[in-house]
Simulated assay, not measured.
Amino acid sequence: MKAYVDKQKCVACGMCVDACPIEFRFGCDGLAESYQEIPQDVVDDVWQVIEDCPVGAICLK
């Protein structure tokens, strides 16, 4: 499972990076990105980040 950040929606608020740094970081464009397959032990954290994203820019595939 992998998280994806819609760069058209992302406002770089940093909520996802702060809440789950093992899965999200800021890319060189200054916007959030997911950079690895989601480790099993942080799946619940990623679901929470998806729910909390203020612009709904994150999804799982």
Rank of each mutant, 00 (worst) to 15 (best):
C16N: 03
C20T: 11
E51K: 00
A19I: 12
S34F: 05
S34L: 13
E51C: 04
M1T: 15
G14A: 05
G56V: 01
I22L: 09
I58D: 09
K7L: 09
K7I: 14
S34K: 06
C53E: 03
D6P: 10
A57N: 06
D41K: 02
F24K: 00
K7H: 12
C53M: 08
V42K: 00
C10Q: 09
D29S: 08
C59N: 05
E51Q: 03
C59A: 04
V43C: 03
M15D: 14
I22W: 03
P21Y: 05
K9H: 12
Q8P: 10
K61G: 09
D45C: 06
L31T: 15
I22K: 00
V43R: 01
E33K: 07
E51T: 04
V11G: 12
C28I: 13
I50A: 05
M1Q: 13
I50T: 13
E37T: 06
D6M: 01
D45R: 00
C28Q: 14
E37D: 10
C13T: 13
C53R: 01
V49K: 04
D45W: 00
P39I: 04
K9Q: 15
E23A: 03
A12M: 08
P39Q: 06
D6Q: 06
D41W: 03
F26A: 09
A57R: 04
A32D: 14
A12K: 07
C53S: 10
D29L: 05
R25L: 08
